[in-house]
Design a binder for these strands. Structure first.
Lengths: 334, 334
DNA sequence: ATGAAAGCGCTAACAC
DNA sequence: GTGTTAGCGCTTTCAT
């Protein structure tokens, strides 16, 4: 393999070729630079032949803005989260930013990883992981780095946020199961993890009580497919008290459905109505055909980036929280 | 909201507080810096109280290495790809790199986006998207930026690669269906997209012919769940000629299974044996219980990062291709 | 082992 | 509108 290595051209190389000064090159590649059309054209032509690219490290050193935005996400291999990150990434790129992906899962050093983002002078941070460390977020705020939290615990303050309204979510779930004819309710409630998942479970339970219906709370380990299958026996044994169950994530609903089908012979929705949450792709798959509640994930990704950009423009504007649009999806399990 | 903004401390601030020269700070934070233990400690202490972090933009300008690595990925909302990106990201971070996520899907300007990575002086690039533009990759190579291609068309040359052996894959699929008792074969073959998907379909067909069995090729639009359901009627109509079908992705297998269950009454595996490929999470879910072929995605992520690092160390070493480990997974559909 | 000084590639304030 | 100049914060020779 012959060494065809070449060095990257600098603005100086371009200037020399175009017969102008380096600063003219800079102006040609900057937005508000006062430069004549013909000079700019000369520069651009030279830049093209040399395949010149502005060195963002040099630019970022000079400006106090890197164009890099951190996306902090856990459980990226989960359908909902994968789509969320995809759309956030897409939206950032469309707006001229470059996303840094920070995957953090249990046993990872979340704090250390998020801290390392600050080495890169990031322009902003979008957090959709479990339990982001408050300390790092505070530090970002001090440095005027906008942080947007998606569906995170409101105990972390000082940031803009995108959040589903757990009140609406719980109410909507109750309404859907009610309309489907349920009168004895159950809910799958994870013991840990996401604030909004537990939140909607609690509100749902409250709505049931408020309306004078019995509600059985079944605690789960996590919010995954396995959590749903693990809860199957529990649900089965309490079937006298439950004819409509709210699974607070689609994944748990899939697990429960499969568990019931596999081990017992329960008619869904005849004997038991099942409602999921999130409306991930699999919910519409024939095997599940799951009634659920859609979170408008695209809207929320767009809103997150928008919030970040607005805060960049106006650092001192009042904190803002935007709600994620919720839509009931009636399919075959209610 | 009071303005609590502070400026980031620089190495100069730390030096002042520690009573040393800036270069001592640099040495304290560099790996091979010759510095006395006590000076280093002084520096570290000062750095800690000021919450100093090395500015990677300044460092990256000086060294010719940014620590940033581009992950170029399409269809991130797909189970296989999501896991792949998650693991690659994790592996990069573990090795001290910072992943930039470049999502590219149809209608996106792939070339422009990948080109923008070069603005950041990236240390390397891991590509797992469809149809990466050869031009950009060539340019990376010229600048000595290691590029690792995962399961991409071999017509793009000059890079290290991670790839499943399509020969093995086709053979394995044939063997599995054979052992399950199939004698009349079918295969779902996407008309576009991934090289390895089409590749294993073609090899599979060839193996069937070589062994003297009839093979029916059914072309699909894409390789998704919908592609599988769309193929259902086609498969149904050809059921006289097929008793074992190789769906070249799990997603297509799910679609086909659901399509068959929903519209027809076909016994699987009695009447028709179905084999998927990838072993995504959903394949083990109760509703599908799909026999498939596992690609060791963790091994491939680790190998990709390893290959990149090796190339960084030894830019001129011969090009290398590593194979992805394949494992037959026997479940309920064969 | 440490301080001094040059310079990575760029932008922006300043002259003209 | 364009050239000049002074840094952005760091690493890295080179002296000492």
């Amino acid at each position: 393999m012959a060494d065809m290595t070449r060095k990257k051209p600098t603005s100086y190389d371009v200037a020399k070729l175009a017969g102008v000064h380096r600063s003219a090159v800079s102006r040609a590649f900057s937005d508000g630079g006062s430069i004549s059309a013909e000079t700019k054209e000369k520069v651009m032509k030279a830049a093209k032949t040399l395949e010149y690219r502005v060195n963002f490290f040099a630019r970022g050193l000079q400006k106090q803005n890197s164009g890099l935005v951190g996306i902090v996400a856990s459980r990226l291999d989960t359908p909902y989260r994968a789509k969320q990150v995809k759309l956030a990434s897409h939206e950032l790129i469309e707006n001229g930013y470059t996303p840094i992906l920070l995957t953090v899962d249990k046993s990872d050093d979340v704090s250390g990883r998020m801290s390392s983002l600050l080495n890169y002078n990031i322009s902003g941070m979008i957090v959709t992981s479990d339990t982001p460390p408050a300390k790092i977020i505070e530090e970002c705020i001090q440095y005027n780095i906008p942080v947007v939290l998606i569906n995170r615990d409101p105990s972390i303050t000082g940031t803009d946020r995108i959040q589903l309204n757990i009140e609406d979510a719980g109410q909507l779930a109750f309404d859907m199961l009610c309309k489907a004819g349920a009168t004895k309710f159950g809910v799958l409630m994870p013991q840990t993890q996401t604030y909004t998942v537990q939140g909607r479970a609690k509100i749902f339970a409250q709505k049931c009580r408020d309306a004078g219906f019995p509600i059985t709370i079944i605690e789960t380990q996590g919010q995954s497919y396995a959590a749903g299958t693990d809860a199957t026996q529990d649900v089965y044994e309490k079937l006298d008290d439950i004819d409509g169950i709210f699974c607070t994530t689609d994944l748990m609903a899939f697990g429960l459905l499969d568990g019931l089908r596999n081990q017992y012979n329960i008619a869904v929705p005849g004997q038991l109505k099942i409602l999921g949450f999130d409306d991930v792709d699999q919910a519409s798959w024939g095997a599940y055909n799951l009634s659920t509640i859609n979170q408008d994930i695209q809207q929320s990704a767009i809103a997150a980036v928008d919030l970040m950009m607005k805060r960049l423009e106006t650092p001192l504007k009042p904190l803002e929280t935007r709600s994620i649009l919720l839509t009931p999806i009636h399919r075959g399990t209610t």
